[in-house]
């Protein structure tokens, strides 16, 4: 499904709530807006449905890609109005003991134009885990070999 070596951000967290409840929180506009930090509007909850971010001067277009309750929700969004490049955001919900494991993955960053990468980077300098899927693994091996 995923192209090898694509640049991804990935975060996973266990939440003490059932999948249905988490599903509601990520697929209804009102709840999504409250935790995501930007107001969204959802035209209809199905593939091809609009998933629009309203906070900016120009609305940021987004499109729902996958709706498989209560397991998988995917949408595409663009970093800036007028930038014809999209990243794919995937939410996977798994039942685990005591709740739900929520795994978020945003992929396709290598396609973004320069000015967006810069603004996004300057806005956040805090560091967390690093994920460059597949490629990262091989590159680390390569780096180890290179340094020995």
């Amino acid at each position: 499904m995923q192209e090898q070596g694509t640049l991804v951000a990935e975060q996973s967290m266990v939440m003490k709530a059932n999948r249905k409840r988490v599903w509601q929180a990520i697929t209804t506009a009102k709840h999504f807006s409250s935790w995501f930090g930007l107001r969204v509007e959802i035209s209809r909850l199905e593939p091809g449905g609009e998933f629009k971010f309203l906070e900016f001067e120009n609305n940021l277009p987004g499109k729902i890609v996958t709706v498989e309750p209560p397991e998988l929700f995917e949408f595409e969004w663009t970093p800036e109005a007028g930038v014809p490049v999209y990243t794919l955001v995937t939410f996977r919900l798994e039942e685990v003991e005591g709740g739900t494991r929520v795994t978020m993955r945003e992929s396709g960053f290598e396609k973004l134009p320069e000015q967006y990468r810069k603004s996004r980077f300057e806005g956040n300098s805090e560091g967390w885990s690093i994920q460059i899927h597949n490629l990262d693994k091989y590159l680390k091996e390569g780096r180890d070999i290179g340094e020995n």
Binding site: Q11, R117, R120, F121, G123, N124, E126, S129, I130, Q131
Partner: peptide, 10 residues
């Protein structure tokens, strides 16, 4: 570094 910043936001 750049991907790290996006992970922090998420």
């Amino acid at each position: 570094d750049w991907i790290e910043a996006i992970n922090a936001t998420w």
